[in-house]
Design a protein around this nucleic acid. Structure first.
Lengths: 207, 207
DNA sequence: GTCTATACAGGGATAGAC
DNA sequence: GTCTATCCCTGTATAGAC
């Protein structure tokens, strides 16, 4: 299994394809979404950026939806990796679960600003009935990672689930409104963690 | 100034146009967004639904962006009306500002679920430099309506502004993730107001 | 597996007739 | 102001050559 390498396609242009077009296309798809949003994902454009013809992707994906599925799955894995890393880092310097809530919010907002997508990609509407196991697993892992610190904050499981949703939705809202231009990225990266901490405090009874 | 009336276009189809094509197109545009989201707004499709040719709209709007601007402005006005009505209704039965926060969240979430858009339409990215006064006014009014109860909750103006953002973003997040299929509408209509109340309590020092 | 070529659909936008 | 007709672009998807 050789790694994906960049190679020269034409003067000044760079493609990714080196024996694993499928993976290269998925990377291009993630970049595409980061630039134009989920609706802007296009099989043809991903092919162009990878340096192959617009027909080539259809050897690897049955249609646009299958491509979207693969991109969403990869995005979910990346999100999981980043959350895991952030949680690990914060646990090294603090035992306070509220610090973990902050880290989750910050990591999620940063992911969404970087990729112009978040849960809305991992749980895309178009794929809701797809029953794809890899995507389900990636989504599940993200949920579980986020849930752990909220259980520490609130021993009551039902309340912990509520807190978890409060934090997701808050972070998602900050990031989404930042993407529409209502907030600046630097502001949101401070506000969202603060809101997460406050929600955690409210759930723990501490103020 | 005659009101917009529906009229028969073809067997089983209905258009809106009666001397005010502009207004009729805007209504069609709002419906279109409610069905397909902001990216799905199409001048041609709005024309078709209004029962006119695809060229007709261009007598009233210079291009798609100008059309989007008009639709966003109208959506902002409707949102303002609904918030105003909801706040008025809740003030009749309660003096507690936390009840107003709940009402705001519920009204906003209901608006977004109904119209598949909210702040992301009123403050659309594509229109951020448009400097259009009518749109700015509509957006401003919505912000002001939402801000009033938060000032009651927190006398500290800076804290009130923070609370305001916390509530917008929370409600927006719940609604947005509901639209992607992660939550059910009925759940979100309960969770978002609850989160708004908790954020208000945290800001007021009450728990 | 990847190419070229092609069919087909849709939207944005304009020209010129009425 | 609205029509018909048209152009151009972009995307999805397939057929058949290599």
């Amino acid at each position: 299994m050789e790694p994906v390498r960049r190679w020269l396609v034409r003067e000044g242009e760079v493609g990714y394809h080196h024996g694993d077009l499928r993976a290269a296309l998925i990377l291009a798809g993630i970049e595409l979404i980061a630039e134009k949003g989920i609706a802007g994902l296009s099989v043809a454009e991903a092919a162009r950026r990878t340096g192959v013809s617009t027909a080539a992707p259809y050897r690897h994906f049955a249609n646009r939806n299958a491509f979207l599925l693969a991109v969403a799955t990869e995005a979910g894995r990346i999100m999981g990796d980043q959350l895991e890393a952030a949680l690990e880092a914060v646990r090294e310097r603090s035992a306070d679960p509220l610090d973990q809530l902050e880290a989750i919010a910050e990591t999620y907002v940063r992911f969404m600003i970087t990729h112009r997508a978040g849960f809305d990609l991992v749980f895309v509407r178009e794929l809701q009935e797809s029953e794809d196991q890899a995507l389900r697993d990636a989504g599940r892992r993200v949920i579980d990672l986020m849930l752990a610190p909220t259980i520490e904050v609130s021993p009551d499981m039902l309340r912990a689930l509520e807190l978890n949703e409060e934090i997701w939705t808050s972070a998602h809202g900050y990031a989404a409104l930042c993407l529409t231009g209502l907030f600046r990225a630097e502001d949101v990266l401070a506000s969202a963690p603060r809101a997460a901490r406050r929600l955690g405090q409210a759930a723990s009874g501490r103020l």
